[in-house]
């Protein structure tokens, strides 16, 4: 039996008095696209951060492809590619140098790293970013370079936090194709996003997190329960559709 690509049990994380993750259970099946959605501050990035070892959980279990991620950290790191959201890069390196650096960090042979980096730069349209210091790259280019470094060592599990943020539509289509090929080849992709449309288009399964807890999980169609995922999401997180009242000074006839 193939173990789940990512299995989280009773995960808890508290920052001062705020419980950001409150006993989350999550299973991502191998060879699938899995979306994690939730309102701002729901605990998505904290959960992902703990899964890939950037945050230490207060309690709970995390297994990656059958290995204990808290104990066998070296092994699970080798199997995982990560694109976190909002973290810095080595800003003085150019895009090409970043890929060369991460290739070395991952223990790739120089020739292999060089070939793969060149191919990723071409496929993701990163020719300009490859020669520009990361500090001077646009947000979209940084996202694409971050994705390239996550793919470079051919991981089996890809964990991406907001991978399409600020990426232009053409590049986004390219990235979607690359990720589909990755999953078709047996890889697993977990992505956190605010775009319900993206989840509906790409994901096999989705987990909805609200206030540090899982409020729904399963195949996308099942979670949507006959309506659009966006409507269902608003219903699940208990948000009221505001914006229809007030602002008369703005919307009234002049």
């Amino acid at each position: 039996m193939i173990p789940p690509a990512l299995e989280i049990r009773s995960l808890v994380k508290t920052f001062a008095a705020h419980r950001a993750v409150d006993g989350i259970d999550l299973t991502v099946h191998t060879g699938t696209f899995h979306g994690i959605v939730g309102p701002n501050g729901a605990g998505k990035s904290t959960t992902i951060g703990m899964a890939v070892g950037l945050l230490t959980p207060d309690s709970g279990e995390i297994r990656i492809l059958g290995h204990d991620a808290l104990r066998d950290r070296g092994l699970t790191r080798a199997l995982t590619g990560v694109l976190p959201d909002g973290l810095d890069f080595p800003e003085r390196l150019t895009g090409a140098e970043l890929l060369r650096y991460t290739g070395g960090l991952r223990g790739l042979r120089r020739a292999a790293a060089t070939d793969r980096a060149a191919e990723l730069i071409e496929v993701l349209g990163l020719a300009k970013g490859a020669g520009t210091p990361l500090a001077d790259c646009s947000t979209g280019t940084r996202k694409k370079l971050g994705l390239a470094q996550a793919l470079l060592h051919a991981p089996r599990l890809l964990v991406l936090d907001e991978p399409f943020e600020a990426v232009d539509p053409v590049s986004a289509a390219t990235i979607r194709r690359v990720l589909r090929r990755f999953v078709a080849g047996g890889g697993t992709c977990v992505l956190s996003t605010h775009s319900m449309l993206l989840v509906e288009q790409m994901c096999d399964e989705v987990t909805v997190i609200h206030q540090g807890r899982v409020v729904a999980a399963g195949p996308v169609a099942e979670v949507a329960a006959g309506s659009s995922l966006e409507d269902r999401f608003v219903e699940l997180v208990g948000a009221e559709a505001s914006g229809s009242a007030g602002l008369d000074w703005l919307t009234g006839a002049r």
Binding site: V52, G53, L54, G74, L75, R77, A78, T80, V82, P84, L87, D88, F89, P90, E91, Y101, T102, L105, R106, G107, Q149
Partner: peptide, 18 residues
Amino acid sequence: LDGTALWLPLTAPGGERA
């Protein structure tokens, strides 16, 4: 000076020693 760029070695096997 490097901000949060430390996440890269922290997600690579043996990254801390390197």
